[in-house]
Design a binder for these strands. Sequence first.
DNA 1: ATGAAAGCGCTAACAA
DNA 2: TTGTTAGCGCTTTCAT
Lengths: 386, 386
Amino acid sequence: MKSSDSQRATRPARAVTITEVATQAGVSTASVSRVLAGSRFVGSRMRERVLATVAKLDYHPNRLARDLRVGLRKVIGVIIPDLQNPFFPEVVHGVEAALYTAGYTLVLGHSGGLAERERTHLAVLRGEGVAGLILIPDSEREASYETLHSWDIPVVAVDRTPSGLEVDLVTSSNRVGAREATSHLLAHGYKTIALINGQKGVSVAQERLAGYQEALHAARVPLQEAFVIHSDFRQEGGRMAMCRLLDLPRPPRAAVVANNLMALGALQAIHERGLRIPDEVAIVGFDDMPWATSLRPPLTAVAQPAEEIGRTAAQLLLERLRSPGRLPRRVVLPTRLIIRASCGAHAPTGVEPVVVSAARKHGQTNKSVNSEYPAFKPPVPAGPGL
Amino acid sequence: MKSSDSQRATRPARAVTITEVATQAGVSTASVSRVLAGSRFVGSRMRERVLATVAKLDYHPNRLARDLRVGLRKVIGVIIPDLQNPFFPEVVHGVEAALYTAGYTLVLGHSGGLAERERTHLAVLRGEGVAGLILIPDSEREASYETLHSWDIPVVAVDRTPSGLEVDLVTSSNRVGAREATSHLLAHGYKTIALINGQKGVSVAQERLAGYQEALHAARVPLQEAFVIHSDFRQEGGRMAMCRLLDLPRPPRAAVVANNLMALGALQAIHERGLRIPDEVAIVGFDDMPWATSLRPPLTAVAQPAEEIGRTAAQLLLERLRSPGRLPRRVVLPTRLIIRASCGAHAPTGVEPVVVSAARKHGQTNKSVNSEYPAFKPPVPAGPGL
DNA sequence: ATGAAAGCGCTAACAA
DNA sequence: TTGTTAGCGCTTTCAT
């Protein structure tokens, strides 16, 4: 429209500025600014004139200029490690929802688990002057966030604990979740239960391992080293891990798999060998994903409130923006064991899964609610593993 | 560090500015700017001094100020309709990859299929002065992008055609994909094939319908109205659609399902009725998702190169940024029919799927490569539908 | 090779 | 109630 269509410039056509509006309306830029800011100190005639001109010229205020002047940006940076793992987009979804409501804009950085990319994004976000940062730390090395120290903006970490960083943190009750998953299998008579876990260094993995150990310990079942495999949170990793388990002279009769992609891989491995679930191998996964119900048998899983995690993280950030000074908080959102059929339990109703337990918010551990379990008859598995 | 830790301000601590660096180094701001810009006209002593001071002060240039001054922003806006559907995050992943390489930053907006949200994001992005826009149009009403007309920046649409908008477009060969899926089923002897599709108004849905029709027509199989269901691209929609089909007096023996979430829903419905796949109902889905191989039977699907779609979109945008003026292009990326077992075909090797055909880039239609098919014996389904 | 100074578009004192 | 003006942090002529 306003650009020379004949001889297109490389730069985008300069946009309408507040000055042009002011001139056209025959008022000062200050007045235009005031009208647009909704100041109470403007005459109604003035307001009309300005608004009309704004509409006529299709004026859009330049946020850059505004933010530069005011020294405040309503922009939040989000760094996530993996767009392939559906868990993270859901978290982002939650973040987005909260930010949108609060009028904040979201700048997304994808680290792909690469420390360097993460650093680059951090630098860019800093240059952009984002008001706050939601960080889902890279899975590899979770240290080296010294950069953040010299950078005085609120940060909230999600899902994984960045070492050496005192910030708000939102996670789900990984330990409890893993414990419940394991206990559930134990309650059904499984005695040889493997854990396919993520990288050793990652905090989620550590927590899930801890939960697994707790459950075994509580049931006085000795931990077998060979049954704990540290993989990489990805599908192929899960497949290989399960292969290794099945290659054991005395393979486990059940497995807890510590994330959704690895669970998929584990299932693959089991199918490839023609083994039946849960009769020959029982499975409890992590993350309740849309496909869980479409699998045969449907997948029992420890559900994490991904979206709520994101929303909570955003809210924490927004709060801290209002009142810095607060001490760092950690919010632990409850996981839920959703019992379907892959674990060898028969869900009472054909369709609806059984939901078991929940940790409570704000760092509390959840009490186990084993009493809520329907009294399943253990499958009494007979096979190599027993 | 530099903020008063005792009496935290609401605003973030003012960052180090170029002026401070200049003063500290005893040079002019212009020099600092030049050094940082990598100008050749700077003495080596100067450079050293500046660089040292920059490091000492931990100076990070303010991109806002820079961009305001220069009138150019290396920021691209991306608007996507649905973060729950794993297809879109993968597209974003591709976009991100390309943008990162080119040094661009990504601002993400989530419309959730809501026109108003989309408008809001558009306005914000405009205010942010993004250099370009990648738009995956809202599924509901794809019109009303008049806003974009008055806004003179390059836009590339992805996946769906925004009506009334002359912009670059990246899609996959939806028509061909749907045709191949349908033809494949026909080739295996299925004569009653349903299509579970997305909303009528959406361009992808239209294209997939067209492909479905083409295949039927080519095989001289009459189209049955009742077999074409327009759902909503979501899981529950797919489930209900499949339920409706199975409730038909003469239900179809096979179905093409036009996206991944709906396919999951359809499977659910089939399982709920205790029907066997593919013996009683054969299924070909859209989108080759990680879980396809973990389903039993593994899901035959029309794969879309989601990530490549995103990467291509970003590249198109970047190109146009360099040379506006160009005429709008549309790039059609090839789909691939990945044959597994849910369609009633037996993949030759136990594990590796058969990949059939591909449309070629840049708008060409792909030639069907039926010759590549191993000679499957049609399952000769005997049931109500035949 | 380096510095002085103008100005990007906007808001917020301060005046009037 | 409205206008004038300084200046946010940066780059970029234009001098020197």
